[in-house]
Computed example of a mutant assay.
Amino acid sequence: MPLARVPRPALVFGVCGLLPFIAGSLAVWLLPPGWRDYALFIQAAYGATILSFMGAVHWGLALAGTAAGGDSHRAMSWNRLGWGVLPALLGLAALMMTAVPGLILLILSYFGLLMGDAAAVRKGQAPAWYLDLRRPLTAAVILCLGLSLIRVLL
């Protein structure tokens, strides 16, 4: 079972990080219109925050590579550090949009970040267990954001 390889603290904190996404989707579906809009904004803001955090993981991995005596020029490449900044910019852009395009951008960004994380694992820039954690968490995030998007479109 792939999740068995994930360190317990990473798994627990990762799953706990889903709670605001789940609560946001429930709120968007169950609350009256005025509150629904507020819940949607909170969910999108949390989504943008976590997207930014997930991008910053790549900076952390690059920094850890240089601290361990690795090649700082290879670890601190434009591509690798740019991949760490792009999610934050996409999250900000999503918050500046109206609900439908903003949610679509967040969904696409989470999917794209997962693809980037998979590439980092293949290149040995992230531990193999990281992808075992990211796949189900990203699927859950995309599901929650997608459910909110469906509600907005109704």
Rank of each mutant, 00 (worst) to 15 (best):
A67H: 13
A39R: 02
L26V: 10
T98L: 04
P33T: 13
G91W: 05
G91R: 09
I42G: 04
L89S: 05
V57P: 04
M96L: 14
A94V: 00
S72G: 08
Q43I: 01
I22R: 07
P32W: 12
A39F: 07
I22P: 14
V100C: 00
S77V: 04
N79Y: 14
L89W: 12
W83I: 12
A88M: 13
G55Y: 12
T49H: 07
V85A: 13
P32G: 09
L30N: 11
L51N: 02
F41H: 15
L31H: 08
L26T: 02
F21D: 03
M54V: 13
M97S: 04
I42K: 13
L51F: 01
G55H: 12
S52Y: 04
I22H: 12
S72A: 15
A75E: 15
P20W: 07
L90R: 04
L31A: 15
V57C: 05
L106V: 00
L106S: 00
P33V: 11
T66S: 10
F41V: 07
I107S: 00
A68L: 14
T49A: 10
T49G: 08
L51S: 02
V85W: 10
D71E: 14
G55Q: 13
L90W: 09
T98A: 06
F53I: 03
I50P: 00
L92K: 04
A48Y: 07
G91E: 14
A88W: 06
M97N: 03
N79S: 10
A67F: 12
A56P: 02
V57K: 14
F53M: 12
